[in-house]
Amino acid sequence: MAENKHQVLLDTLDNKPTDRILASFWHHFLQDERQQVLGYRDRNSIDKVIKLQQSFYDRYRPDFTKIMSDNFFLHPGVIDHTFESADDLKKIQHIDPKDPWITRQVAAIKAIVDHYDGEIGSFYNIFSPWYQLRLRFEIFEHDTEKIYRFFKEDAQTLANAFEILADDLIVLSTQLIKESGIDGIYLCVQQPQDSLISTKQWQQYVQPAEVKLLRAVQKVHDYNMIHICGFEGKRNRLGDYKNYPVKAFHWASYVENVSLKDGKKFFGDRAVMGGFENTENGVFYKGTKEEVQSEAKRLLIDNGRQGILLSADCSIPFDTDDARIAWVSEAANRSAG
């Protein structure tokens, strides 16, 4: 009898041998970035995404899911204030555990996970404190440099804000794991893309909040994953994440030029996820069925099978034919043995 996909996911994350390889790909369900942030205030938008996520599962039967946080991108404290200087970041304060941003989020994810009826496991997308603040300035002000100006102006005030955000993200993540049925969070991180911010400064002012968040969530359930985001070609120093307290690692193998096999060794033989390019130039998006399946087989031949989940470097283009997911899973398991 074939193993239950949900149990296979947990066994894979535990680096155990399994009788199948799991594959999953994901994209956003809302195209408007402001709606991705503010949608939690609109029950119709929440219901829309729930139904789209449920329909996605019904139509394409992914082996597991990374549930997108559309409608709930950013902490209310990040979006409800104006920030003209670094000192204004002191406006960011804790929210009540019963704030709609938390309660509606937990209820929405529970509705999605309940729909799986225990057949598959899932992660939930959470943006790190640094990522949240960066997205706030990019989405609402179209200012990609503001966070770096604030960092140079008063890094400690940013670090204090990150600490507050981490605390509330711990509350959110704990409720999600205990009440919605996800197996863990998928924490999106990305290092500053400004060479004037040194590794030492990143370690002093940004990293502590991320590690604090992950350490706390690992105590709730230790099946959490870190996504070292290389979206749109952003580069990261992978070595700076080697000691992060997570069960599995996901990075942009095409951007960083680090294979699954090499990354697995680099991260202490913990479980890894990825393999496919996520852009419109990648074989998953534009290749024929034969080309996609050939790439899936190559990835397993080159990188091994144990402790590996197949996916893309990051979210795939919105208009991707999701039927391709089954092509990858089919090829991966036809080549077993």
Rank of each mutant, 00 (worst) to 15 (best):
D88N: 13
F73A: 08
D63E: 13
Y57V: 10
I79Q: 01
K90Q: 13
F83M: 04
V78K: 01
N71R: 12
I67E: 04
I67S: 05
A86C: 13
K66H: 06
I67V: 15
D80H: 07
D70R: 03
I79E: 01
Y57S: 11
K48P: 02
F73W: 13
M68L: 02
I50Y: 09
L89C: 09
S55L: 14
H75A: 04
P62F: 04
S69T: 15
I92Y: 00
S55R: 15
D87R: 15
I92N: 05
D47M: 14
D63L: 09
F64A: 03
N71D: 13
V78M: 11
D88Q: 09
L74I: 06
R59I: 00
S69Q: 13
F73P: 00
A86T: 09
F72I: 12
V78S: 04
L89G: 00
N71Q: 14
Y57H: 14
D80V: 04
Q54I: 07
T82P: 00
L74P: 03
L89N: 02
I92G: 00
Q54R: 15
A86P: 06
S69M: 14
F56N: 05
R61Y: 13
P76F: 01
S69V: 12
D47Q: 14
L74Q: 03
K66W: 05
L52A: 07
Y57T: 06
N71W: 08
V49H: 05
K48T: 15
D80R: 06
D63V: 07
I67P: 02
Q53N: 11
G77C: 11
F64Q: 02
T82I: 09
I79T: 09
D47I: 11
K51N: 12
T65G: 00
D63F: 05
E84T: 05
H75W: 01
P62D: 11
I50L: 10
L89Y: 06
F56H: 10
S69P: 13
D70M: 10
Q54D: 10
D70C: 08
Y60Q: 07
E84K: 11
D63P: 08
Y60N: 11
A86G: 10
Y57I: 12
S69H: 11
P76R: 04
I92E: 03
I92Q: 03
K48M: 15
L52P: 04
L89R: 02
G77N: 07
F64Y: 15
I46D: 04
D87E: 14
I92M: 03
P76V: 03
R59D: 10
R59T: 01
I67Y: 04
F64M: 08
F72W: 11
K90M: 11
R59W: 00
D58M: 09
N71T: 15
I92S: 05
D58L: 12
G77P: 01
D88L: 08
S69I: 08
